[in-house]
Structure formats: C-alpha cells, structure tokens
Design a protein around this nucleic acid. Structure first.
Lengths: 125, 125
DNA sequence: GACGTAATTAACTTGACGGCTAACTAACCA
DNA sequence: TGGTTAGTTAGCCGTCAAGTTAATTACGTC
C-alpha cells in the first residue's frame, strides 16, 4: 500500500514537470540517448541527467548501456499505474451521477412504475 | 498551449501528494466540507486549507458556500486532462510495439505474401 | 451582543526541487 | 598515449512547497 503510494507520488511528481513530460512523449515514440533527449531544451546536461534520474526512480524509464551511450526506454508499468488511479476515481465520480440521473428518470415515471417508490435514497451528489 | 501546459503541471503536482489524492478519492464518492475532508488526517486545518487551494487552483475541485460551510466538489475536466495526456502517450508507445509485432509476423510469411517485401522500415523500437 | 463553530489568512521554519558550473568517469579513436 | 565524445557526480544557490501556531473572518445560536 504505502509502497504503491510512494510510487504514485513519485510518478505524478515526475509527470508534473513539463520538461519531463516532453521527455516521456519523446520516448513514447522511440528510445533515445541522453543527448538526443537534451537537444530540444536550453538546459545544461547535468539538469537533463537529474530529470532522467527522477523518471528512472519512479520506473517511468529504464536505461541500458551501449558503448558510451545510455539509451533510455519508456516503461509501460508506471504509466499504467498513474492511468489506473485516475481512471478508477473518474469512474467512481461518474457512477455517482449516473445513479442520480437514474433516480431523476425514476421520479418522472408514474409512481406505480417506479423501482423504489418508497425508499428515501441519498442521491444528492 | 502554455496554458494547457501549466494546467497539466498544476494537476499532476496536485495529484503527486498522497493527502490530496485521498481527498480526491473521497470527493469522487461525495461532496464534502473542509472539516469532513480533514477528519482522516493528523494535520492542522490550515494545512488542509492549503491542500484544497492547490486542488482548486488546478481546477480539480470547486467550492461553493452554504452558510458557514464550504462544500467541495470534484470537477471532471481537470481529471480528464491528466487522463488524456497519459492515455495518448501510452497509445503512442503501444502502437510502436504493435508495428514491430506486425513486422515480425510479416517476416515469417513467405516473401510473395508480404505486404512490403522490399521496403526497409525502421522498426527497432 | 456574546459565544461557538467553520474556515481562511498571516508569518514563520524547514526541506525538497530545479537550475548552474566544475570536475570526474567511461568508452571510442587515432 | 593523448584527445574527443557521452554522461554522471559534487557542490552551490534561489525558489517554492508543506507544515506549524496565532490571529481573523464569517456565520449561526443563545
């Protein structure tokens, strides 16, 4: 639980920076070396290196070694975890209003056709 | 562009904190007042107030006024923006490997059945 | 009007984050 | 061996985020 929590913390923190999001977007299309990733940015290489470390620590990317290059690779799992969290809570939110809608539709029908004509449901969202 | 960027920055930053994620999860189920939201946490009310301000500034929640209470309401849009960003990049990532798979399948077929028997596609992910 | 409750604002401390330069390691090349 | 390219580490600095306590605003009740 807390492990997952901390991982989510780190993942959302990583995604909160526009430089890192651009890196992720770049890596979604193809693996890239550090210098390739750095090219679009007006920023020192050490700064880039730090950003990559942030992405690596939360599992968003992995790095291998090919001669003097360290190609970066986007990993699916961490991205999925973040996606799942948002999706789940959005689903819960949506269901709440689906229920409300159903209730309102229910109220518009004649009483003898209503599914729960007597129950006082808590439907205020 | 930059507006959307900044909004995404703020949204992911908001979601990066476990206290705020818990608040969002709570608000997905039902609207709540500040004190209700504060209850689960061993934290001063001003700290809670600050967290809510962070959630409000990125549009994740809105607050109305009912007598001396300020009920908080989860808004769908900001949540969707974050979801969309991740989904899109995950899709791009996935397509890359789908193409690779298709290419590999293609290679296994006899040459005269292949779709692009001559082209040298760049398929290394 | 006085008091209690809901919530925010103000002022402050602490620690993490994002950037820099300088110095270093690692691999290739000639 | 010496030089070049790729990338990281170390150390510094300014800013901002997250928490605290104390004071303040806003509303309802007696």
């Amino acid at each position: 639980m807390t492990v997952t929590e901390d991982r989510l913390d780190a993942t959302f923190t990583a995604l909160a920076d526009p430089t890192r999001r651009a890196m992720v977007a770049r890596l979604a299309r193809a693996d890239a070396t550090v210098n390739e990733l750095a090219a679009p940015f007006d920023m020192s290489l050490p700064a880039i290196s730090k950003h990559l470390k942030v992405l690596e620590r939360c599992g968003l990317i992995s790095r291998t070694r090919q001669a003097q290059f360290r190609p970066c690779h986007l990993e699916r799992e961490a991205l999925d975890s973040a996606l799942d969290w948002i999706e789940q809570n959005r689903r819960i939110w949506t269901q709440r209003f689906d229920k409300l809608d159903a209730h309102l539709r229910d109220l518009q029908r004649p009483a003898d056709q209503q599914e729960h004509p007597d129950t006082q449901e808590e439907v205020i969202p």
